[in-house]
Each structure stands twice: as C-alpha cells, then as structure tokens.
C-alpha cells in the first residue's frame, strides 16, 4: 500500500485540490505505484467525491485534530506552503512537494518553503507544474532534514544569565 497525502492546513487551496484530484493526476499517481490518495481540504469549496476501487482509494476530509497519523502513513506529502505543514512533514522524514498558491503573493510563509527548497529538502512547484514534477522528480535526491538543536539555545542562555551549575 503506497499512499500520498495532500494537506492545505487551516486555509483553503481549491486549485490544488482540483488539480490533484483530476483524472490525469490520479493516472500519474497510479502509474507511480500509489494506490491511496488522502486529501485534507480545509475550508475549500472544491470537494472531490471519495471512492474506493480495487486498485485505488480516494479519501477526503476537511480537518482532524491531528494530522500526525496521516503524515505518518504517507509515502509522499503534497502540501501548501504553510510553515507548520512543511516542518512537520520534513521532521517525519517524508518526501515533500510544496505547491505554491500563486493567488497569495507576498505571503511570508513562502520564505521558509523557498529556503528549504534551496537547501534541497523539498520539491517546489505551482498547480500548473505539479503533474510534470510528479512524473519527473526523483525522491532520492532530497536531502534529509536534520533536527533543530535547542540544546545550543539552553547552553547560550545559561551562560548569558549567569546560571551556576
């Protein structure tokens, strides 16, 4: 069972949902060996009809308290550029494709996705280039995302506040 998870967070991203649930995209995903697609659509107005056949299952929901489980089960995450979604996927070591919403320009959230893309941790595209990317990308080229080092922060703080061990 190989599954892809699409998440738009607490916002809506109708173009992405429409694009990824279209017949062409589903065919591409099937060809790549995926047999399950889960869509978390948030406040979106595009609500694809879920279905389940022998070879492919499409699940659709708006929100859940925690997306952890769906992220954990995913072999590929396709996400909006929200920082929370990006970081959580990378921390779980999931291959990540970030789809930029061109209708939301000057969104500061893009800063992080762009930077992480520059460093080779994720793929980055728009709705119109998503299908091409899915077909051409090589997930093995992605670099793993090392965990942050809060201990450096505590060591720094201990020193500057004069904490005696």
């Amino acid at each position: 069972m190989k599954s892809a998870f699409v998440t738009v967070g607490t916002t809506s991203f109708d173009d992405l949902i429409a694009c990824v649930a279209a017949e062409d995209s589903l065919r591409i995903l099937k060809n790549l060996g995926y047999n399950r697609l889960v869509l978390q659509i948030g406040k979106g107005t595009v609500v694809p009809e879920p279905f389940s056949t022998e070879s492919f299952t499409l699940d659709v929901y708006r929100y859940k308290d925690s997306l952890k489980e769906d992220l954990q089960q995913a072999d590929l995450v396709i996400s909006h550029a929200g920082a929370g979604s990006c970081l959580e996927s990378l921390e779980k070591g999931k291959p990540l494709v970030v789809v930029v919403n061109e209708k939301l320009m000057n969104n500061h959230q893009l800063e992080l996705a762009k930077q992480l893309h520059k460093e080779g941790h994720l793929f980055y595209c728009t709705c119109s280039t998503l299908r091409g990317l899915l077909q051409s990308m090589d997930l093995s080229t992605l670099k793993c995302y090392p965990p942050g080092q809060p201990e450096k922060f505590s060591a720094f703080l201990d020193k500057v506040v004069g904490l005696q061990k």
Binding site: A83, G84, G148, P150, E151, F153, S154, L157, D158, V160, V161, G162, L163, Q164
Partner: peptide
C-alpha cells in the same frame, strides 16, 4: 552578568506554530 542558582521564567506562548516552537526551547531548559 549576575551569578545565580535559579531564575523565574515568563514564557509568552502564542498560537499554533509559535507555541510549538517556543515549547521546544522551553523543553531544552534545565
């Protein structure tokens, strides 16, 4: 720098991502 053994901490947690981030930092403190 005043040497000290302990200190009272006030942490401003925001919402969503801000809280997640700051709690990671707090988690690392002794």
């Amino acid at each position: 720098v005043t040497p000290r053994k302990s200190l009272g901490l006030l942490i401003v947690a925001g919402s969503g991502g801000h809280t997640t981030e700051i709690l990671r930092l707090v988690g690392s403190l002794s």
